[in-house]
Design a protein around this nucleic acid. Structure first.
Length: 479
DNA sequence: TGAAATGTTGGGGCG
DNA sequence: ACGCCCCAACATTTC
C-alpha cells in the first residue's frame, strides 16, 4: 500500500498546466489535495477584503474542477506548517508538493517547511508554475539581477522561450479517500453587512473557466487594438486577466502561447502581441525584483527616498479613497475600484501620481488601500507599481513625471464615457468641461444640475500649486 | 507609460 | 514688396 502524497494548493488554483500537480500525479501515489487558509504566515501581507472575496469563489471553482477528476479539495485553516503536519499525521503522507511563490514571507515559509518536513522524513518539493521565467535564471552579464526593464525584457525574449503549457490530461489522479475538511462558508471570506460585492459575480468569474473565457474574449476582441486601446479606460481592450493570474487560475505560459499563436496566424498583429507580452514582462520584472530585493514591499528601492518629506494628511487620504478629490478622472478611478475591485491600469497611474505627488502622501498608504480593495492585489505588482509611480522604484518613472489629471482625462477619455459612468453627478456636463467642472460657466453648471462644492467637490488642491510643491519636495532629497 | 516652459519656424494679416 | 507682429504648430529642454 503506497503512502499518499499531499498537493498543497496556494496561489496556483488550477488543474491544467501546473507542473507541481503533474509531478504529483506522475508518482502514482494517491493524492490529498488541500488548501490552507493561513492568517499568520503572511504577516502584514495577509490578503485584503477584495482578494478574500475572490479567493472564496476561486476555491469553490477549483473544488468543482477537482471533483470532476475524482479529487476532493480538503480545506484547513491555521498556520501552514501546523496544518500540513496534521494532515501528514492523519493520512500517512510521505511527501508534500507545491508550486513556488516569490513573496518574501512565502519563500521564508517554504524554507522552514523544507527543514521541518525533512526532519520527519517527509519530502517537500516545490515547482515553478506562476512565472514565465524563474528569477534565478535571469541575470545580467555580471551575474546581477536586472534593475532596468528594457534590458531585462530583451534578455528574456532573446533567450529560450518559456516551455509550452503541458497538455491537459484526464483522470490521472487517484484520491486517497476521505480526509476531513472544513467548510468554505465557515471561513466567511465574503463580505456581509454590507455586502459590497453583491453584484461582483456579474462581471467577474473567479476560477479557471472564467480565466479562459476572459482570455478568449481578449484574443478575439481586445488584442487587435491593444497598443493604443489599452490606454483608454472606457474601451474593453485590456485582458482583465490580472486577478486570474494572481491566483494562478491560468498559467502565464498559456497566455504566452496563445498570443504567439495568434501572431503567427496574423503577422499584422505582431506589434500588438509584443505589447501584450511586454505587459506580462512587467509582471515578471516585478516578481523578480521582489524576489531579489525583498525589502521592496516596505522600503524605497532608491534609498534617498527614505528622506522624502511625505505628508500624513488623513482627511486628504480619505478624500482620495472615496473618490472626492474634485478631479473627475481621479474620482472615477477610485470609484471604479470601490465598486468593482478593479481599476484600469492607465487610471491606476493617474490616481497613484495624484496621491503621491499632488497630495504628497506616502506610496505605502496608497499601496495599502489598493491591497485591501483590488481583486488582483499582488505583492510584487502592487509594490513595484507604486514605487514606479512614486519615483522611488527600480527603473522608476522620473519623479518629475507628474500626471496632469485634466489632460489625462481629456486624452484618454475624450468622450467622457468613463467619467460619466463613475461620476454620474457630472454626466450632464458637455465634454469640454468634464475634466474641469470648475471652469464651466454658471449657466452650464445650472443646466447640468451641478452645484460646485455641494453636488461635486471643488478640486481639493490646485494643480499648478500642487505640482510646484511636489517638485520642491523632490528637490529636497536630490543628491 | 509626462507636462510645462522655452525655442523655432512659417504662414497670414497688415501697415 | 517688405518688415513686423501674431500665433499656431512643432521641436527641444527642463522640471
Amino acid at each position: 500500500m503506497t503512502n499518499p502524497l499531499i498537493y498543497w494548493f496556494r496561489q496556483d488554483l488550477r488543474v491544467h498546466d501546473l507542473p507541481g500537480l503533474a509531478a504529483a500525479a506522475a508518482t502514482g501515489q494517491p493524492l490529498v489535495a488541500c488548501y490552507i487558509l493561513d492568517d499568520e504566515s503572511p504577516g502584514e501581507h495577509l490578503a485584503g477584503s477584495a482578494s478574500k472575496w475572490w479567493l472564496h469563489h476561486s476555491l469553490q471553482a477549483l473544488a468543482g474542477e477537482l471533483r470532476t477528476i475524482g479529487i476532493t479539495l480538503t480545506l484547513r485553516r491555521g498556520r501552514a506548517a501546523d496544518q500540513l503536519g496534521r494532515l501528514i499525521e492523519e493520512t500517512g503522507a510521505d511527501a508534500v508538493y507545491c508550486t513556488r511563490q516569490y513573496e518574501p514571507w512565502a519563500g521564508q515559509l517554504e524554507l522552514e517547511l523544507h527543514a521541518a518536513l525533512q526532519a520527519q522524513d517527509v519530502s517537500f518539493k516545490r515547482y515553478p508554475g506562476s512565472l514565465l521565467f524563474e528569477p534565478d535564471d535571469i541575470m545580467n552579464r555580471s551575474g546581477q539581477p536586472f534593475k532596468v526593464f528594457t534590458p531585462f525584457w530583451r534578455h528574456c525574449r532573446n533567450g529560450a522561450p518559456p516551455p509550452p503549457p503541458q497538455p491537459a490530461r484526464e483522470a490521472i489522479l487517484s484520491h486517497s479517500g476521505t480526509v476531513p475538511s472544513e467548510s468554505l462558508d465557515s471561513w466567511q471570506l465574503c463580505p456581509h453587512n454590507p455586502n459590497w460585492a453583491a453584484d461582483w459575480l456579474t462581471f467577474w468569474q473567479p476560477g479557471s473557466a472564467g480565466a479562459n473565457s476572459k482570455l478568449r474574449v481578449f484574443l478575439a476582441e481586445g488584442l487587435a487594438d491593444y497598443s493604443e486601446g489599452r490606454n483608454h479606460p472606457a474601451r474593453e481592450t485590456t485582458s482583465r486577466l490580472s486577478p486570474h493570474l494572481h491566483f494562478g487560475e491560468i498559467s502565464p505560459r498559456q497566455l504566452w502561447q496563445q498570443a504567439q499563436k495568434l501572431a503567427a496566424r496574423n503577422p499584422a498583429q505582431q506589434e500588438q502581441v509584443d505589447k501584450f507580452l511586454s505587459e506580462m514582462g512587467w509582471r515578471e520584472f516585478s516578481y523578480h525584483l521582489l524576489y531579489h530585493f525583498p525589502a521592496m514591499a516596505e522600503e524605497p528601492f532608491k534609498p534617498q527616498f527614505k528622506h522624502f518629506p511625505w505628508q500624513g494628511d488623513k482627511a486628504a487620504l480619505t478624500a482620495w479613497q472615496q473618490g472626492q478629490t474634485g478631479y473627475p478622472i481621479v474620482d472615477a478611478g477610485m470609484r471604479e475600484l470601490w465598486h468593482t475591485g478593479y481599476m484600469h491600469n492607465r487610471i491606476r497611474m493617474v490616481v497613484a501620481s495624484f496621491l503621491t505627488k499632488h497630495l504628497l502622501i506616502h506610496w505605502r498608504a496608497g499601496a495599502r488601500w489598493f491591497w485591501d480593495t483590488l481583486v488582483d492585489a499582488d505583492l510584487a505588482n502592487n509594490s513595484c507599481g507604486w514605487q514606479w509611480v512614486a519615483g522611488s522604484g527600480a527603473d522608476a518613472s522620473p519623479y518629475f513625471r507628474i500626471f496632469n489629471p485634466i489632460i489625462q482625462g481629456d486624452k484618454f477619455d475624450a468622450e467622457g464615457i468613463y467619467i460619466r459612468r463613475w461620476v454620474p453627478e457630472l454626466a450632464g456636463l458637455p465634454d469640454r468641461y468634464l475634466n474641469r467642472p470648475w471652469e464651466a460657466p454658471p449657466e452650464v453648471l445650472a443646466a447640468a444640475g451641478i452645484t460646485p462644492g455641494e453636488s461635486y467637490p471643488l478640486p481639493m488642491v490646485d494643480h499648478k500649486t500642487a505640482r510646484e510643491s511636489a517638485l520642491a519636495a523632490y528637490g529636497s532629497i536630490r543628491g
